[in-house]
Design a protein around this nucleic acid. Structure first.
Lengths: 236, 236
DNA sequence: CCAAAAGTGTTCTAGTTACACCCATGA
DNA sequence: TCATGGGTGTAACTAGAACACTTTTGG
């Protein structure tokens, strides 16, 4: 088959912004780059797109290589393509952000890549334009989590309302009234109260909840304002 | 300088979903593809990214080539990269959507590319995965316009409230109460009432408004629901 | 028994909706 | 003068915000 003539071909990489939450603060999974340039410097996990794979596929592969996890929440974020963003050779980077339960991450695997979790507000310097990518991911997450039930991806299957609140408070760097917060969350009908409690973080113990999966899928839409009844009109 | 070895390089294209509104319905600007494969079939305006340009730059260049317009609203949408989306050769497509005042579009320029406006709900078949791109752009626009003052990009500098309402009603395929609609729009404080009227579409005439540019920039944020006072926390 | 965290209700306010008539004008 | 589209106000309702005390239990 003919090719398009007279055009320049470039490398396409996928970079993953992998976010977790440890109950205290948001964490970002970084690796120490194993090859030049910027060897030993901290970097997002990434890789080149292979000939027979699509972009989502590449992102999933890269994520699995690093964490051993499949079926992680993964969403395409933005594509970065300044001509000299990688000094070695022109590389267009398609970024994805991932949300995962930090406890599922298997520590030993990280050794292969010298991977480490860093608090989002206390990170080392990153190579290239990776810091801009992280910034963008943070903004997207704040934006999206305000509208869609999304942050559960960061928690284990069973979680408590106080945990959930800490998650939101961490993301927005604010404190919310727990009465209003709980009411609002529960009013979505997305949660199923369990009969057992988490006694880890208090003497009284907090009831566990699970997501109602079927409702989760259907209620992914949102609540907006510029038009009347906007939720009728929005696709996720 | 060394290159990364053992990796495949691919073409990177930028495709633009160019939207306009003619007072009646939303329109999409398509071109008749001038080269094989799929020659003569309808397609989004696109082009390959050149060695010394970034992605946004490429999108702006492509848009200007087709319309002669600069400073058009342009936003990166999504990157498509299935291995065989272009049967000739692997091409990763970074899509942008553009909103422009359809009246500014200079018809004669379109001749070079056999460009034509098509109603969004009555389009010819498109090549490759371009239809999926258009769908995604529609969804993004619905989503975003519900939260941000964005649709003004489709109108001339001076516009009337009934025009604005038609714009929203067209996008959401719904009708809104004009009293409530006007109140809500005006309450944003984004509009400056002019002293002259548009007499084109009615005998009485409708007052023109202009955007208050300074407020437009500052009020780009939104109004949400999952957290209290979400507008405090959102970057556009 | 007490410190620490979980859980729960009510009032007030602001925003959203529903709804119907008068106005200005050109033909 | 009348048909057409532009413009306006109010009342009822709903959702969001502010606010403080009681419960449980491990140490």
């Amino acid at each position: 088959m003919m090719k398009y003539s007279g055009q320049t071909r470039v490398l396409v990489a996928v970079d993953c912004i992998i976010l977790g939450f440890d109950g205290e603060s948001y964490k970002l999974l970084l690796i120490q780059r194993g090859f030049a340039p910027e060897k030993k410097k901290w970097s997002l996990m990434g890789g080149f797109v292979q000939p027979q794979e699509g972009l989502d596929e590449a992102a999933n592969r890269i994520l699995e290589e690093l964490t051993g996890l499949k079926n992680v929440y993964l969403e395409q974020l933005h594509t970065f393509g300044s001509p000299h963003r990688d000094p070695v050779e022109r590389t267009v980077a398609v970024t994805y952000f991932a949300l995962l339960d930090i406890q599922k991450y298997e520590k030993q695997l990280s050794q292969d890549y010298h991977a480490e979790w860093f608090p989002l507000n206390d990170m080392p310097e990153l190579i290239f334009d990776h810091m801009a990518m992280v910034e963008m991911a943070k903004n997207r997450l704040r934006y999206k989590a305000a509208l869609h039930p999304l942050l559960f991806e960061l928690l284990p299957e069973k979680f408590t309302l106080p945990q959930l609140q800490a998650l939101y408070e961490g993301l927005y760097e604010a404190t919310f009234d727990k009465r209003n917060f709980n009411r609002k969350l529960l009013s979505t009908g997305l949660f199923v109260k369990q009969h057992d409690k988490d006694k880890e973080s208090s003497k009284k113990g907090a009831f566990f909840y699970k997501l109602d999966q079927s409702k989760y899928i259907n209620n992914f839409q949102a609540f907006l304002k510029f038009i009347p009844n906007p939720e009728k009109f929005l696709a996720p």
